[in-house]
Amino acid sequence: FWGSKIITAATEAVIPFLNERSLYQFQWGFRKQGRSLEDFMVWAKQELRPILKRMLELAAKDDILRPQASYGYWKAAGDGNDLVLFEEDGTTEAARFTLPRQMREDGDCIADFVRDINDPQRDVVGLQVVTVGQKASDIARDWFEENRYQDYLYLHGLSVEIAEAMAEYTHKRIRAELGFAAEDARDMDTLLQQNYRGSRYSFGYPACPRLEDQHPILALLGAERIGVSLTDGDQLHPEQSTSALVILNKRAKYFTI
């Protein structure tokens, strides 16, 4: 299909895409303390998974996490350093993003990963925006004000990582719908290290740094239908939300500028 559609996922369906290492180390702040990563994860599965299980049960009981996404497909072409999206006719311009190029000979730019604008055949890119909803932020704020600092930390970190898991869930759906799911790594930990075809580029990172470029993305996706908007500072609201360009070219991997 062309254009966008809305999906709602049960938290249980998203959990397999949860990056537990990121949750434990970077969101909840547990350190390896001299252990190898392998030993740390063995310890974490014994000591921290019960906390994760408790928080998920609490979130389910009070309907705190509400994973949703708007995603879809647009015809696309590269025009120099510009990624151009088109309406279904392939000629009416829907959006244009000017993107940075690496400062070296044959340096990469996201616009390189789609067909050239002079090619008679258009390429396709995916767009997605995901959220876990405003209630997670509201409850976390309530807990902080009630001096439930530990639960606040656990819920805030979990909701951030559930949003990332929903982004992975939606991205996998895109690869499946476009016929590339067979190229995914079978092991989930390996998959989450970008072992699949193409990449998902989020705004604010070096390859697409302009947060304001999210305005046309959210407009095309009708993001207001899942309650997502941009603040005056071009930050996504609710906080636990992400947006991205999904590029399917097998050469498209993360790169620095």
Rank of each mutant, 00 (worst) to 15 (best):
I6A: 04
I7D: 11
A13F: 07
I15F: 11
F17L: 04
L18C: 01
L18D: 02
N19A: 11
S22P: 00
W28E: 09
G29E: 03
F30A: 07
R31A: 14
G34Y: 08
G34V: 10
L37P: 07
L37C: 06
L37W: 12
W43P: 00
A44E: 04
L52Y: 09
L65M: 02
P67I: 03
P67V: 03
A69Q: 11
S70N: 11
S70E: 11
G72M: 08
D82H: 11
D89L: 00
T91G: 05
T91W: 03
A94K: 03
F97S: 13
L99S: 09
R101H: 00
R101W: 07
Q102Y: 03
E105M: 13
D106Y: 11
D108E: 14
I110R: 02
F113H: 08
V114M: 02
D119N: 15
Q121I: 12
Q121W: 05
R122W: 10
V124K: 10
L127M: 09
V129S: 09
V130N: 12
G133I: 12
A140H: 03
R148C: 13
R148H: 13
Y149R: 05
Q150V: 14
D151K: 10
Y152R: 02
L153A: 14
L155V: 00
A165C: 03
T170I: 00
H171G: 06
K172W: 10
K172T: 10
K172Q: 14
A176T: 14
L178A: 05
G179W: 02
M188Q: 14
L191Q: 13
G198R: 00
Y201D: 08
G204F: 05
C208K: 04
C208H: 05
R210A: 15
L211A: 12
Q214I: 08
H215E: 15
L218F: 04
G222N: 12
A223Q: 01
E224Q: 15
E224S: 14
I226P: 10
G227S: 07
T231H: 06
D232R: 13
D234P: 04
S241G: 06
S243V: 06
K250G: 02
R251A: 10
Y254L: 01
